[in-house]
Design a protein around this nucleic acid. Structure first.
Lengths: 188, 188
DNA sequence: GTCTATACCTAGATAGAC
DNA sequence: GTCTATCTAGGTATAGAC
């Protein structure tokens, strides 16, 4: 009961999309990496768009579900941010290629898949923003532009996937501890 | 004495590359945005590769030159990091489209242009790493994995270009002050 | 489930008229 | 400096044999 051929195609494709981007990878490239001909791919997927939509929505739903767990947990804002950072590191370790494609190629989605993903992203940001604003109003977070805080943390987390060579040598739990420390307490 | 047709082509192209990525933008797209035919582009540039190389190297050299000024300035490590943050915000304001392409499409460069850009990037990171390590050894920066600090700050700075809608409403000097504060002192 | 063959389209780029 | 016309290569996708 290994993975299906469809999952295999999506896995290989996401690795190629990460390296070269969706538009620069052809169906022939994907097929070649699987040692089959391009035409054979169409027995398992409807087209290139389906590959893109599947792998982006897979990781998008993971983020959505994890974020909603954080939102309903009984933690203070700082603790929630810590959880979000740790969660983001876990998802990056589990779906590094999907995240690259989500970040860089979401705009090549077509139809309702595009709308879904844009909405997921907005909801995710809005939840994060709520945590930060609550922390500011409670006096636990510096009274700074919440957008600057949101952007700084989120852009670091979103590009974690680029950091695999160095992270590979580092224990995930050490990385979490250090990341939380740097992003919350600063570097001084 | 306005800009040349070549500069105009590169300007339009960089905006399109930012929005859709290098591979998804055709020479016909670029031509259409200039209200001419694709064949006419070749009177001003040798091909699509030249457009890519020109706009990436332009901003790459800007970063390189600005970073070397910071390195030779008589400032302590924390002050140097502040300067790098401020510098990065300035370059982002001046070259937002070039930075998007540098970040996302550098791997589509061919020949020696690719080597040059990869080296520029490595040198830039290495300079930043030196500042952080010196700060740690002098006791002004937290004794944490320097790579985590480097990565956190750099990934925030590199994706600043994505943040144009909100930044547009914010004064550049306020943004610099807040960014320095968040990245150096944290959010608490 | 994979193949060959192919349809149809769009890509980057060039030639030569104006 | 821009045009039309065109070349060649490569793209996504389908039909039908095995």
């Amino acid at each position: 009961m290994g993975i299906t051929r469809k999952q295999e195609i999506i896995q290989i494709a996401s690795r190629l999309f990460k390296e070269r981007g969706y538009s620069a990878v052809s169906m022939r490239d994907i097929a070649q990496a699987l040692d089959i001909k391009a035409a054979s791919l169409y027995n398992h997927i409807s087209g290139k768009q389906e590959i893109l939509a599947t792998l982006i929505i897979e990781v998008g739903e993971e983020f959505t579900s994890q974020m909603s767990q954080v939102m309903t947990a009984s933690l203070n804002p700082i603790e929630k941010i810590e959880k979000v950072i740790e969660m983001h590191i876990d998802v990056t370790v589990n779906f590094p290629d999907n995240i690259a494609t989500l970040n860089n190629d979401w705009m090549h989605l077509e139809g309702i898949a595009l709308n879904r993903v844009v909405k997921m992203r907005e909801d995710y940001e809005e939840n994060f923003r709520k945590i930060i604003k609550l922390g500011i109003s409670e006096g636990n977070i510096k009274s700074q532009h919440p957008e600057v805080i949101l952007f700084s943390i989120l852009s670091t987390l979103r590009t974690l996937y680029l950091w695999n060579e160095k992270r590979g040598k580092m224990d995930v739990n050490v990385l979490k501890k250090d990341m939380v420390s740097v992003l919350i307490n600063g570097i001084i």
